[in-house]
Design a protein around this nucleic acid. Sequence first.
DNA 1: GCGCGC
DNA 2: GCGCGC
Length: 596
Amino acid sequence: MIRQPQQLVLCFKQQQQLQSSTLRQSSTLNFKSSLPSVNGTCFKQRNQHKNFVSLNTPIESPTYNYPITALALPCKSTRNSRGKSPFGIYVPSQHFTAQRVKSPGSMATKKKTKEKIDVTKSEVSPVNLNEEITKVLEVLARNEKSEDNVYKERAYYNAIRTISLYPQKITSGEEAKQLRGIGESISRKIDEILSTGTCEKLTESSSNPTTQLMNLFTRIYGIGPVAARKFIEKGYQSIDDLSKDPDLTPIQRLGIKYLNDFEIPIPREEMIELDKLVTITAREIDERYTVTVCGSYRRGAPESSDIDIVLSHPDYISSLESDPGELLKKYVDCLSEKEFIIDHISSGAVKYMGICRLQDNESRIHRRIDIRLLPYDRYWLGIFTLTGDDEFNKKMRSRAMDLNMHLSEYILARKDKSTGEIREPIEVQNEADIFRSLGLSYIEPKDRSWRMVRKKYKSDQKTEKNVNAAQQPESSSDKIGKVNENQRGGSQQPEASSDKPGKVNEKQREGSQQPEASSDKIGKVNENQREGSQKPESSSDKIGKVNENKREGSQPVNSYHRDWIKEEIKSQSSSNRLLEATKRIFKWPWTGISSR
DNA sequence: GCGCGC
DNA sequence: GCGCGC
Ligand SMILES: [Mn+2]
Ligand SMILES: [Mn+2]
């Protein structure tokens, strides 16, 4: 029985990121399954946010008459040239893997294409010499984001990163095209920018009212591409129009209310004050709370966009019997009583999102605050994930998949080869354990900002000790003192404090204090640990006070400069091969950027 | 990439 | 399913 081509809807959410090459329109896909073998063409439909696959081969199956919603299953990224099964789809009650067919032609042309230059392989520019170009590309990237074209957005950011590192002023699109991340389309735009200062795509979009409105509306917290489009279809022309809509969700109303404040970055000085407040507040309720401010702040960024807190308590661990209870609520209530938290966006048992403000003076700006309650014994996985950035997390999880493992803030585990089932967790006592299990060299928090565009750098003095730190963030012209704070913070590795969370043993289940670091770490533990203070301590934001804070009995002031041991960089640099391998795996080596 | 809350 | 978080 011959059938018409069937459409499959591919949903890429919550699955391994699919490289744009995998998603390119007209890619031929071949599905091998319990159903007869089929293949189809991948395409994107206008005004649809999903990717479709139309089947070229007719299929006969009981599911034929049903709309088939397909999920892309974990797939090997295309950079894995061993390329087992780069694609898989899931059909309700049917489960089959699929293979992307590489046409012989495309293989041949792939071989023919010239090796692209990796700018990070040689000396990079300390400053962005091509700002004229990257500025335009940044707007184009943001436009694509508003339209929900995440792959195009990423492509632009990749290009921007390359170009901003390029050690010369680019004089032609052809020159730029030699670099990785810049292809036909962007190189053409570069020629346009060089001769006219702008490009057609930009002028076109900035004169297109719909694009402008998309950009405007998606700036509002709680309004994504879908909602924005809906509001535009209703005919709204401004935020004023929008705010009269009865269908606005409470969250979107907050988004409008605080639109201006949310776009003001949080300087690191303020982050440190916020850190102090949230740390002290937890101690006031219960000494056993552990508060760690993560996100860009932990990556050492000079500015942050919000406050990301990992909260942990020995009463909540990753066992079926353990439940989060009111641990998070109690903490949030306390912060609300202090009138620090003033509005709530969402509030669950393990994740809280809200709005806060320091009150010491009227000029304080409203800030976004996120709090995640994570199992005490999974503390380090939580820290790792919540430190990010998102691109870094994706790459790490992708790496885990390549190794047939699963990585999330809750678990690092191997998967069963045949069933794909997640097996028992791999022990994680600190962040270094995660890198080790993934076969990677240790990457410092300050080197984990893989998404954002590099802004300013000062040329670097490479130390033998820290081979990773090819560059350090340049001091933002304002504060000199901040630089030291950042650099020091960057290399500071909060690991394995004497009472660090992460390990649950019998004692702990009874709610007693933490044991010492695991034995395999002892050799690396420095003098800090032997002090055996009750709680992870912290220094204030000034280097001069570090020693002072190391004294036993001093109160933790914030979570950042906690008196944890520094992961021995020496052990990293001793394995230069591992470092080189790590850089190879991720094609974009970390460049020392600290950004939010 | 994976997970939370609505 | 959307929007958000990293
Ligand atoms: Mn953040
Ligand atoms: Mn956040």
